[in-house]
Each structure stands twice: as C-alpha cells, then as structure tokens.
Write a protein that binds this DNA or RNA. Structure first.
Lengths: 349, 349
DNA sequence: TAAGTTTGCGTAATCGATTGCATTTTTAAT
DNA sequence: ATTAAAAATGCAATCGATTACGCAAACTTA
C-alpha cells in the first residue's frame, strides 16, 4: 500500500517543519506568503489529502453524525435519511447509518457504537418498545448521551426527555383530521389500527382519532381499536377480527400504510366495496398508496423536510456552544392526502 | 462537557501506566490476572469507553466503510444498503452513506471525502454518466483508489476496471428471459426503454432484449428503442412517441419500473387494454409493482442479497492481505416476476 | 545605530490508544 | 541462598494533525 502523504512528507521535501506546513494549509496568518505558496504547490504535487482521523482526534470533532432508524428500507426512513444527508452535505458532515430492526438491544449497541466512534451528534427514531423495563433502560442510556453533551435529536418516533430536541409531525391533529374526514364521508363506525402505545407518535394518532369521534358525538368503542404492526398480514388479520363483530365497522383509520393495505386486500377478497361500503385511510404515504388499484388515502409525513429539519436542529445545536440545555421541539405540518379509498361520491354519503 | 474517561484516567486511579491498562483491556498476555481484573473493574466503574478514533489513527483501520449511491430513497438502493449494514454489523464495521444524485461531481467529492475519512473500503454504484469526458475522469479517480489499495466494490452499476470487484445480477440473461416471455405471450412488436448506455447494466439489458428478438427470428427495430430515465413522466412520454409510429408496438420491456408505470398509466388513459392489447414488463421490483391495479411484471434484482454479497466480498478482501490484486466478480441470479401486466389468458395469444 | 515591534518559523505538547524494548519483580530450580 | 528464567510493568515512540510558546531575523522608528 503506497503510504499516503502526510504533512511530514511535505515538510521534509521543503526542508521546513510540519508546523509550517500545517499553518500554510490552514490559512494561519503566522506564515509568509512565499512559504504558503510553496507548500500549497508541493501539497498538490504530492497529492496530499488531510487525514480527518488525526484531525478528529486532535480537535474532538469527527464531522460524523450517527443516524439510528429501525430499518432503512422503508420509504419513510430512507427519505428522512436522504433529507439529513442533503442538509449536512454542505456542512461537511458525514452520515453513519445504524439499523435497530425494532430491537432494543440493538438500539443500545448502536448508541454505544456511535459514541465510541466519537460522532458529533446522534439523530434517531426510537424503536418499538416491547416492555416498560426496556423503556426505562433506554431512558438511562439516553440520559448518558445527554450528560456527555452529545447532541441528540429525535425525529418522528420521539421520547420526551429533558434536554433532547425533536422533530415530529402533528400526529394528533392530522389523525383528528383524518377521522373527521371519514365521518364527513358518512362513516359512523370507524375502527383504528393503533401502533405500539409506548411510542408517542402512535399514542397521539390514537388520541387524535378518539378526540375526533368524541367531538363529533360518536361513541368511542374499544372493540374498534386493534393494535397492529404495520404489515400486510397483520392488517388483514385485524380486519378479519373486526368484521366478526356484531356490529362491524364501516371504516378504518390505520396508523400505518401496510396494515391498511392488508385490510383493503382482505376486504376486497370478502367482496366488500371500497369506498362505497367501507372507507380506509392509512398513514405514511408510501409510494404504493398512489399506484394501487384504488389509490389509498393516507398522511404524508413530509419525511424529506423532517430529515432536513432534524439536520438543521443539529447544526444549530452545534453552533451555539453556550446555552447548552436549550432543546428545540419542532413540529412539522403533515398533509392528509385524500384519495379514492375514502372518497365517496355524494350519492353514497 | 464531562470529559470522557481515557486509559490514562484509569491508570492514574490505579497508580499504574496506561500501557498496562491497555494490555489489561486487550487480552494481552503480558499482564497479571490480578491487575487485569482490577483494571476491568475500574474501567467499568469509571464507565470507560474505548475511543475508536485514537485506535483508528494508530492502527490505520477506521472500521468504517463508505457506501456511495445515486440516492438512498429508492427501494432498490435502500435495500442494498440494508443488506450491507446487516452483513457488516456482526463484523463491527459502520456504514457511511453518500448520495451523488446522479451527479459526477458529487461522485468525485464523495470518493475523496471517504478517502480522507480513512474508510476501510468503498462500496459503490456508479452514477449515470453524462459524457465520455466524465467517464474518463471517474476512471482516473477510481484508479487512484485502487492504487491506494483501498478495497473498492461496485454493486449493480459497475464499471469494468482491473482490480475492482463487483456484485451484479445477470442483467443480460434476465432481460433475455423477459423478452422471450413477452414473445411467448404472443407479442411481436416489442419495444424497449433503455437506460443510460454508459452504464453496463443498461447496456446488458438492451443487449439481452435484442438477442432474444434475434434468436426468436424477430427483426430488431431501432424505432422501438427509446432511452428514458426511469420516471413516470418520461415513461408516459416515451410511450406516446411509440404509439405514433406507423406500426406501434404491442409490448414494452422497460429497464426501469417507474418508466413502465408511466407507460401503463398513459396506455390506460388511451383506452388500451393491458395485457390483452399490450404487455409490459418492468425492471426493479419496486414495492408498488405488486400493489397496482394491474400487478406489474418485473425483475427482482435481489437487492438484499446484493448488499450482503457486496459486504462479504469486502470482508474477504480485507482478510487476505496478500494476493491483493485478485478481484472478484460476483453475478447473482435475479428473478423474473411474471404478473398480470404481461400474462395473457390463452385465448389472447 | 539602538531599541522596539513585527514577522516567520521551529520546538514540543496534545488528542487516546497500542506496542517493541528495557527494566523490574516474581517464581522456580539448584 | 543464589541464579536463571519467566512474568509483569514501565518507558517511549507512533499514528497525523494543530497550536501555544519562544526565539531569531527583519523591519521600524527616532
């Protein structure tokens, strides 16, 4: 391996010291113009490239940020990461990706790995939490991150922890709107696929749904609420359960697109007409929702904006060394996309 | 910022030297059991975490690999990255993500950034190339990477460069199969949406398509081949052009799913029946292809396997220090997924 | 020309960990 | 008890860059 040129190599070449080379390359005023020119030329000639590792060790800044997501191959997370990368690119930061696969253990490991790698910040979306015990443990390690003063920014799946910034969408409001929309379409028995209630976003979606019912004078019925992960299979199973009720629902507001898709597939194979007999609204605006046989109503979580905003919050935090405890809770406005799966012709209402 | 504990802190605490602490923590045999125990306990108590930056500087191994993709928010690339991350996770490597947005300039920049960050390897899918000049320039910088002996592995969008490993799919063969399939369905005037011909994968897809025609005794007609990027708009426009021909085609084999989708949408709005009047096969197996009104035939590029394989090739390369020049060209078998957009009932053939 | 000021550059410490070599301590053998 | 061998530990260099400090040369100014 041809060893890479260092400032010492340049120094030797010019018979000066590495210190001068460093100064020449860093716009340090304590160097003569002539030497600077010489160094810069020689550096170019020798194809010198600064070793960021050495710089990072010395300066304490690695110019890497860690991003922790449950998985990367979902449109939402991939888009958020795209946003983060784009925003940070101009600021010379690199993005290190970690996946948890919704596994809390992996979450600890990832946080530790990133801290050991001396990242300058961590942007994360927390994993589904399987138990209160884990929740407590995660809180503990997160507090360690905060104590170390490593900027931590949650996006989407946040936890409310003092001193930690977050970027989320208006889950409650948009869920409220979605449910209201179903009511306006004439639906009266609206079911909900709720997500893991340890996660605030899913709690908020559930709350928004319930509040909309209450405000519309519709009785809230627990039997219409099923906890599902957002997969086609679980959505199909959930809707099967629902349709066995004495008084089955006539609409679903799902907290995830895939569960909604599973429900639609199941309903169709049962001969139920959508949207005439049954309306469905999903959540996430996965690309497929727009290309389906029946385009699905859903919520656009503005992932690109979310990623960019999370990156911006990180950059702000980095740039004000004082005022360390200030945390920043950004709430973006999401977009209810009404499509055919929940849009009834007037005659059906 | 509470400074992180270092081995020197532990050394001071126990009144020994950092060297001994290091040995104790690294299973070095030149240390007594008693000291080792003491050090390990104290390290735990003081919440010591190894600084990977210092280790990387000293050892020359950063345990980071760079991944360069045109964009991360496509199902294909996101899945490949997932595969890479999963495979490398167990080997303690981290993944740094870079996007080029199909911009050659960004591609240079990203390669340089990664080299400066001292990554232990680069896995990349090259960007669309806008001109021969750029192609030459990219070749030059890639050769620099090879000279520096930094492992470089192409996946999917490879370039043929000596000493560089690659993981691809059998683009020619599967395109041949897809075209043959269309012929078997009774299609006789098969068009092709080809991609950027500077990229081998698109060239291979085109060649596979053409060879299948020739081998089936169908005349190859240049007018049936249109270069498009894989977007809905370009696909729709391309099919408009095709349908204006004196003898319009009765099938399309598209080198991308989105262009195929655009074509289908356009054909439908023109009242053309699919698959009865017109068959379409895409490429990429984007999730939406399975959830469309008419599920689309396409090619599953096995991105997860591709990512894992690329990571494996990297690991192999790392682990054999000798035999440096050996490169590894892995070709995975992709899967033609025949769905309704190209599957005619017997009566129509 | 003497004194003070500025400029340019070298010396050496630092970031945190590892490791070859030297030295000390312990153990074993006679 | 003596000595050799073995084990444990310390010393100091190293990875590559930055920077406070100090010294010497050059430049001002009177």
């Amino acid at each position: 391996m041809a060893r890479r040129t260092t400032i010492y190599d340049i120094a030797k070449e010019l018979d000066i010291t590495a210190a001068s080379v460093s100064r020449a390359l860093n716009n340090n005023p304590k160097i003569s113009e002539s030497t600077r020119k010489l160094v810069i030329e020689t550096a170019a000639k020798m194809n010198y490239k600064q070793n960021k590792l050495a710089l990072a060790l010395r300066s304490g800044k690695s110019f890497n940020v860690g991003v922790i997501v449950p998985r990367i191959d979902s449109n939402f997370f991939a888009s958020v990461i795209r946003g983060i990368e784009e925003e940070l690119y101009g600021h010379k930061y690199n993005v290190i990706i970690c996946q948890t696969h919704e596994d809390e253990k992996r979450e600890f490991e990832n946080i530790n790995t990133l801290l050991n790698a001396q990242v300058d910040g961590i942007l994360m979306s927390v994993s589904s939490i399987s138990s209160q015990d884990f929740s407590v443990e995660i809180d503990r390690i997160i507090k360690r991150v905060v104590e170390k003063n490593v900027p931590l920014i949650f996006f989407d799946r946040k936890k409310s922890i003092e001193g930690v910034s977050s970027v989320t969408i208006n889950d409650f409001e948009v869920s409220y709107l979605a449910t209201k929309h179903l009511i306006e379409q004439g639906c009266t028995r609206i079911a909900h696929f709720k997500g893991n209630q340890f996660l605030e976003i899913f709690k908020n979606r559930f709350d928004g749904y319930r509040q909309a019912l209450i405000d519309s004078g519709i009785e809230f019925d627990e039997n219409y609420v099923i906890e599902t992960r957002s997969t086609i299979v679980e959505g199909a199973n959930a809707v099967k359960t629902l349709m066995k009720l004495k008084s089955p629902p006539d609409a679903i507001f799902s907290s995830g697109d895939f569960a909604a898709l599973g429900a639609i597939q199941q309903l169709k194979s049962d001969g139920i007409r959508i949207p005439e007999d049954f309306c469905v609204v999903g959540f996430g605006n996965e690309p497929f929702t727009d290309f389906m046989e029946l385009p699905m109503s859903t919520v656009n979580q503005v992932p690109l904006e979310m990623g960019k905003m999370a990156a911006k919050v990180f950059l702000e935090r980095i740039n004000k060394t004082g005022n360390l405890k200030a945390s920043n809770q950004v709430v973006l406005t999401s977009e209810l996309k009404i499509r055919e799966s929940s849009l009834r012709a007037e005659v059906y209402k």
